[in-house]
Design a protein around this nucleic acid. Structure first.
Lengths: 354, 354
DNA sequence: TTGTAGGCGTTATCAC
DNA sequence: GTGATAACGCCTACAA
């Protein structure tokens, strides 16, 4: 008595037929968008159960409705960063919050320069949040704008001014940290920056490299630092990791003759690495060398010390983006938000050694 | 000369008409699935540019193709956990990896018991990964299975055995840690578990509560611990955080008369919290009290100590799930994977005080 | 290589 | 309260 396995899943039309009602009626039973007689509803539900119908196909619904309930969050490079960098995870946390009222899902996407695959434009999403620390974002912006969907850029360069963005006072905040160190008396300072561009090269920063830099955050923070220390040598890190800070810290601190009295890093992770390197070399912080960071993330492992840094509103950044997306999907215009960092003096900076 | 703003976006049919070709031709130009004369392609592209057509609408394409290129990752409770818990972030990292070959996007979703909103079933996805530490997952499984899409469960109870799952040897690994502590001579041991159920209650574990527990991981790890210490008192944490460990640590260690000689925690974060609490109370670890954890995540801030724990393959868990999804989308059957933890002795456990 | 036609599964509109 | 019908925008046999 066994028949062929049904070749396709039941559709709402099948359910309607089985229940002896119109498809529109069956549809309404599932969407609840109109009143249906109890008896009718029962029959439809029974038919659905019978046929193993699990409710409307979201793909069809999203075509019909023009909405998918999904917001894309676009990272450049590997998605690892989305989960491994504490500033980013905090931001995502805030974004999830800001998006909560939409009960929209968050689609993680990457925008890798090399690949041409399906790409950003092929995802059925209702809006885009571009997380961009690089000029790459500019290009993505064009791709995405063409779709006519809401876009918000977090710390990226949106090209023209028509796209709302969530920005940070990177330059000012960096200058404030630098000024603190200057005021302590330091004049011989080394700077460690985030990556300059997609190459992620660890190398001294030259005017040429700086001119070719594509990561706005890095450039802005460096600009702030150089307001106070115009001639300080700078080196770009290959990424924001403690280990990278250790490597660069060793380079900077190993030779007593060329050792700076203070190191300013563009991230807390790098700063912590430098402190580790100093400890390795038997140097005391801040007696022998002062170290300051940027971000204000919670870092354990400083042995009771607190890092001098500036605290960026990472969670707030995400929440603000989410809120703007929600506004734009509601038909209002999105607004650019300028968020500010708060300087937080710690115990890792002090007067320079005599 | 200004005309009304066009009421709707251009479609591929508009482009085809404008270019003077058939829609199928225009479609092929964008999909690249067939050869098109260069001249024709040019004309189509020009027409598209003219009309501001940014390529096929993914919503329509996914209906037509039956695929959206999206894999849903379902968490129970707040998405915060996806970003703030180190074990989970590592797992997500692995998942992104395992899914990379599909070049599928990852849709973060939550499955909150309370809410009935759009819900899991309303997302246009091709497959589901259920991250479940609770019995809640069981229910989600049913919802999702009805869709007839591939499903993989990570550390959850899949109900019947037909769903591939990624599992850990939680009981055995816990027993191994416990045995290590037993072998050191400890007999007076306190246990700290993860949450027992959705209530997230911090409270002593009674047989009744244990019987009602829904989080399989917690139950399994406790079972392993009790193989070695059948009568050890246990308390459930409200979550896996350092701060929670501190709170519970204070409770357990404050009174010298009732203080255990060792504390076994079901997560490293809880264990670190206990160590902090011990330090606060002026107790030395491991001289006055031994502490062990579970997970093997990298934790700074132990002041040079290394936590005795068991290392779970968090990244591998995610990667395995991604690979199974990829297989299933390829038409093959998914397979359950049993992963194992590796015991890692550290310096936070030692012989009990006399 | 290009054109035609049908349908993917749903929901909104509008009569009844 | 219920039913018929027309899109939503695209892709892909199939025919020319």
């Amino acid at each position: 008595m066994s028949s062929q396995e049904p070749p396709r899943r039941a559709t709402i039309a099948d359910v309607a037929r089985e229940a002896g009602v119109a498809t529109s009626t069956a549809s309404v039973v599932f969407s609840g968008k109109a009143k249906v007689a109890d008896a009718t509803r029962e029959r439809v539900l029974a038919a659905a159960a019978d046929l193993g119908y699990a409710g409307p196909d979201p793909r069809a619904a999203s075509l019909r409705l023009g909405r998918s309930g999904i917001v894309a969050v676009v990272f450049e490079g590997h998605l690892r960063n989305a989960f491994l960098d504490p500033v980013t995870t905090a931001m995502m946390d805030g974004l999830a919050d800001g998006l909560a009222e939409l009960s929209a899902g968050i689609l993680l996407m990457r925008d890798e320069p090399g690949e041409d695959g399906p790409g950003l434009a092929s995802a059925p999403v209702d809006a885009y949040v571009l997380i961009g620390w690089s000029g790459r974002t500019r290009e993505s912006v064009e791709v995405v704008r063409g779709r006519g969907l809401p876009v918000v850029v977090i710390e990226g360069d949106p090209g023209d001014g028509t796209i709302p963005r969530i920005a940070l006072d990177n330059a000012d905040a960096s200058a404030e940290v630098a000024q603190h160190v200057y005021d302590l008396g330091h004049r011989d300072v080394a700077l460690i920056t985030l990556t300059l561009g997609h190459d992620r090269e660890r190398a001294p920063i030259t005017p040429e490299r700086l001119a070719a830099a594509t990561v706005g955050v890095t450039v802005d923070r460096l600009e702030g630092m150089r307001r106070v220390f115009p001639d300080a040598p700078a080196i770009s890190a290959s990424g924001s990791f403690i280990d990278e800070g250790i490597v660069i810290g060793r380079m900077l601190l190993a030779d007593a003759a060329t050792r700076p009295t203070a190191v300013l890093a563009q991230s807390d992770l790098l700063a912590v690495g430098v402190i580790r390197a100093a400890q390795e070399l038997g140097l005391r912080v801040p007696e022998d060398v002062s170290v300051a960071g940027f971000d204000g993330i919670a870092i354990d492992g400083l042995g009771g010390q607190s890092l001098t840094t500036t605290v960026q509103p990472a969670v707030e950044k995400g929440r603000a983006a989410g809120e703007q997306i929600a506004r734009m999907l509601g038909g209002e215009a999105g607004e650019t938000q300028n968020l500010t960092c708060v300087f937080r003096p710690g115990t890792t900076t002090g007067v320079p050694p005599r």
